[in-house]
Amino acid sequence: MQEDYINIILADDDEDDRLFFTDAFDELRITTNVKTFNDGVYLMDYLNNEESIFPNVLFLDLNMPRKSGLECLKEIKQTDKFKDMAIAIYSTSASEEDIEKTFVMGANIYIKKPNDFKTLKKVLSEVVTINWQYHTNGLNKDNFLLRL
């Protein structure tokens, strides 16, 4: 029964980060279906495929070869069928510029990659259990960046 899973996708070019990401979900007691892509082009190819399953939450790294996270975000937001997809920016930096830009472009939350595994697990479990409807309504620039 695939419908009971929370579908999660991560697009990140860094192999270690993908490993941490999947490890963290493995250790969390949430039934998730995690898919990872190496860059934006693979991600968009998948999303544009009619048979693909849409994720509940999409985690986007910003710095990726071929197609960056910002480009993916822009494409997704321009496509009607992806409109309601929750998008979490998942980046090493938390520069004001990046935060501002992705907020304006319509991302739902901004996560700075934590530097220890415990925090990572905490952040991810937080994000996948967010009530997006509620979160998006009260979204502003101050609570856009996830703070724990």
Binding site: D16, D17, D23, T92, S93, S95, F117, L120
Partner: peptide, 20 residues
Amino acid sequence: SHDLQEPLRKIQTFLSRLED
């Protein structure tokens, strides 16, 4: 500064994995 953070973050994360 930015690019230095990435490997460092991994070192720290792996350390926490190692510790756990």
